[in-house]
Amino acid sequence: MQRLFLVLIGLSFFASITFCSDGNKYGKKLTVKEKTKISAILEKPKDFIGKKVLVEGTVVDVCKKRGCWIELASDKPYQKIKVKVNDGEIVFPLEEKGKTALVEGEVYEIKLSKEKALEKAKHEAEEHGTKFDPSKIEATTYYQIKGLGAVIK
């Protein structure tokens, strides 16, 4: 019984080393070979809606409570894109912030009425602990990536 116990501990140690060796992997295995620039998606988002893309960028923010989204910096200044994953399917740890992520996913569009945009802005202000200014909120359309798999180094 003691031997079995030691073998199990040894296997867990080996598994943890394997997991860390070539970046942290999340979700499904990456299948798309060619990378798409985030700036290209943000410039002509409608061309990419519904398409599977592979993007690379620095992780500049992570969902603090559930790890259910990350934001990636674009290859061009002042741009970023959100990668949303299904709750529980992938959980991104906060430690990944600042690292480089390779993400595969599908581009999609979100249209928000003014009421929904207000709700979202209020939620985000609460989450980030920032001021909520409803006067600047309008109906909006924006684009995200539904994350299917990622490797973060």
Binding site: T58, V60, A73, P77, Y78, K80, K97, G98, K99, T100
Partner: peptide
């Protein structure tokens, strides 16, 4: 230091191990 990012011309985010 891990990396940094400018979300706009007046803001700089710096990512350090355990600190943003």
């Amino acid at each position: 230091l891990k990396s940094s990012f400018s979300p706009d011309p007046n803001t700089l985010n710096i990512f350090v191990e355990g600190n943003t």
